[in-house]
């Protein structure tokens, strides 16, 4: 019995130490973790967080190279800074963590600007428009969320604006959550869930690239924008990015980006709807 008591004591002690370490981490988080533009230039590499499974925005092609709308922009940033890029593959749910721990300098992973996120990270000027969309199987196209039955499930990816929107506005709808885009896609193709809610750019791309699917709801929730994000307080990098985005507007960089990466999927019809040039969002028509 004595031994058991001793053992419990030892374990409790270990737990307390673990808790103390966590608390220590909490304090450490207040320290400066980000790198300024000069520090990045000095080190010769910039760490950019992108998606690796989200064609055509950020994905790894058959040669193992990062490609897509976000990546095209990332390459230009590195070129103008005169540094190499170290791509860091992120999941939707851990984009904020990567910035807060200083593991990446910039997130360019189709990151939608929201108020909640802006409390945790700093967003630069936007470079793309986005809203939510819902894609369903052709045999039962969901055209309104009221068609969702009590037992039906909507697929969402954990940590996306689609999840936040549905949790907040439709708390009674059952969600089937996946942690990666690839997993959600496979599950949806296998018949899990009645529909899939995600950025409308992505569901439209999905329905174009795969047969048997229809985007029943093209625009849901508020019209949002996508922007680069940096660690909260990293003024130096934020200002540099904003100047860069404004300068790139002069040469219509994001239109070129669209034509190089997205036109193949969406055609040219969506160009002016999606692209934000020079950080200026056109007023709604």
């Amino acid at each position: 019995m004595k031994k058991i008591i001793r053992k419990i004591a030892a374990i409790t002690l270990a737990a307390v130490v673990a808790a103390a370490l966590l608390a220590g981490y909490a304090f450490a988080a207040d320290d400066v973790v980000y790198r300024t533009v000069d520090e990045i230039k000095e080190s010769g590499t910039i760490n950019i967080g992108v998606f690796s499974d989200k064609s055509p925005f950020g994905y790894v092609d058959e040669y193992g190279e990062y490609q897509g709308y976000d990546v095209y922009f990332a390459q230009r940033l590195a070129q103008d800074l005169g540094v190499e890029i170290n791509y860091i593959s992120t999941e939707a749910a851990n984009r904020i963590e990567y910035l807060q721990t200083g593991k990446v300098d910039v997130i360019l992973a189709n990151f939608t600007v929201t108020e909640e996120r802006a409390q945790e990270v700093d967003f630069a000027l936007p470079y793309m428009n986005v809203a939510l969309g819902i894609v369903s199987h052709d045999d039962r196209v969901i055209r309104d969320l009221s068609e969702i039955g009590a037992d039906d499930r909507i697929i969402v990816i954990s940590g996306t604006t689609a999840e936040t929107y549905l949790v907040k506005n439709y708390p009674d709808i059952l969600l089937q959550k996946f942690d990666t885009y690839a997993a959600a896609k496979s599950a949806f193709e296998n018949g899990t869930g009645v529909c899939w809610a995600n950025d409308n750019t992505e569901v439209i791309a999905f329905a174009i690239e795969n047969e048997g699917y229809t985007v029943g709801i093209e625009s849901l929730g508020s019209a949002d924008t996508i922007a680069p994000a940096v660690t909260k307080g990293n003024e130096s990098l934020l200002n540099w990015l904003n100047d860069e985005i404004k300068a790139l507007g002069e040469e219509k960089f994001f239109h070129a980006d669209y034509e190089a990466t997205l036109a193949e999927t969406y055609g040219l019809d969506y160009e002016d709807t999606l692209v934000v040039e020079g950080g200026v969002v056109a007023a709604a028509e």
């Binding site: 988080a29 749910a93 851990n94 904020i96 909640e116 945790e120 954990s158 996306t160 999840e163 942690d179």
Partner: peptide
């Protein structure tokens, strides 16, 4: 997953 999901939703990491 619950922990990861909540972090993604509300950013209360610690």
């Amino acid at each position: 997953f619950t922990a990861k999901d909540l972090i993604g939703l509300y950013s209360k990491t610690i």
